[in-house]
Amino acid sequence: MDKQYLTPAETVKSIVENGKRVLTQSRLRTLVLSLLAGFYIGFGAELATVVSHDAAQVAGRGVAAFLSGSVFSLGLMLVVVCGAELFTGNSMLASSALHGEITWGHLLENWVIVILGNLAGSLIFAGMMFASQLWTAPGVADHAIKIAAVKCQLPFTVALVRGMLCNWLVCLAVFMATAARDIPGKLFACYFPIMAFVASGFEHSIANMYFIPTGLLLAAAQGREVPGLTWTACFRDNLLPVTLGNILGGVLFVAFAYWYVHLKVDGRRSRQSRPGDAS
């Protein structure tokens, strides 16, 4: 009977081996997959906005946060099962670089292409949702604008720490999804950590590339000037600290930690643990 999951040590080896794709994958393919990831996270974000816009009035803020996180998890499910390049999940490439399978230059090149592709996909999707006029439903636009404004008003350190906590969970979701050997297992692996980070109020850079521009577009359409909600604040006050936090959280707490525990032995890379030796 086939194994239903990989052990943590086997999972790290699989992640390291998978990271070698950046050596052969074309930049154009990476860009297309990055655009798709921006779309997929956008689907989760818009669904979370619609589902949660009046839930707090009916069931309370805690239940509203839980519902928002539950439906938002669709985004990572699409990324993992359908295949796409998501910047936050690609923090796991640090394991491959640490183990010498790819260079840090390859990692940085991938990150630059992927984050730009994710941004483009998120902006395109925000524009499509704006053009759909689905925001005319009572209360939805106001809720979307409020979400964006709150994110732009976070202090730098708060946004940084929330970004770290967020991608710690996102990368654990990727880790568990890699360990799962079937589709239901991968879906559950995505659901619980993503639900947890959204319900907790942590900050995800790619989701915010959708949330904040959507709020800006809707505020502009209504002729509203919302304190703190500007394009400058979007990039400087939110995306900059949140992205840095996402990198730190994913690289330190997941990619480095599990590489160190399972692949680094006595201060050097274990020859026995090399990905190519795994069967």
Rank of each mutant, 00 (worst) to 15 (best):
M1F: 12
Q4D: 06
T7K: 11
P8I: 03
A9M: 07
A9P: 00
E10R: 10
E10Y: 05
V16E: 12
E17G: 05
N18M: 11
N18K: 14
V22Q: 07
V22S: 09
L23D: 08
S26C: 10
S26M: 05
L28P: 00
L31D: 00
L35A: 03
A37R: 00
F39K: 01
F43M: 14
F43P: 02
A45H: 09
L47V: 08
L47H: 01
T49I: 13
H53L: 01
A55K: 05
A55E: 01
A56M: 05
Q57Y: 09
V58P: 00
A59S: 13
V63S: 06
V63H: 03
A64T: 07
A65D: 13
A65L: 12
L67D: 09
L67P: 08
S68K: 14
G69E: 14
S70N: 07
F72L: 13
L76A: 04
L76I: 07
L76W: 02
M77N: 00
M77V: 07
L78C: 04
G83K: 11
L86T: 02
L93S: 05
S95W: 03
S96F: 04
S96Q: 09
A97N: 03
L98V: 02
L98P: 00
H99S: 12
G100P: 07
E101G: 03
E101M: 12
H106M: 01
V112W: 08
V112Q: 02
I113W: 10
I113Y: 07
I113Q: 01
L116I: 07
L116G: 10
G117M: 09
A120W: 05
A126V: 05
A131G: 13
T136A: 00
A137G: 04
P138C: 14
P138F: 09
A141T: 04
D142I: 00
H143A: 11
H143C: 01
I145T: 05
C152A: 14
Q153D: 15
L154E: 11
L154A: 03
F156G: 04
A159R: 13
A159L: 11
L160T: 08
V170P: 02
C171R: 06
F175G: 11
M176F: 13
T178L: 02
R181G: 07
D182W: 02
I183D: 01
K186S: 03
L187C: 13
Y191H: 13
Y191G: 06
Y191M: 13
I194E: 03
I194M: 11
F197N: 07
A199C: 11
S200K: 09
S200A: 15
F202E: 12
F202N: 12
S205A: 07
M209R: 12
L216N: 06
L216T: 01
A220L: 13
A221S: 15
G223R: 08
W231G: 15
W231D: 06
D237R: 10
L239C: 01
P241G: 14
V242I: 08
T243A: 06
G245A: 03
N246Y: 08
N246T: 11
L252M: 15
F253K: 11
A257T: 14
W259L: 02
H262E: 08
R268C: 12
R268Q: 15
R268Y: 12
S270H: 10
Q272D: 12
Q272P: 01
S273I: 02
S273M: 15
D277W: 14
A278F: 00
S279L: 12
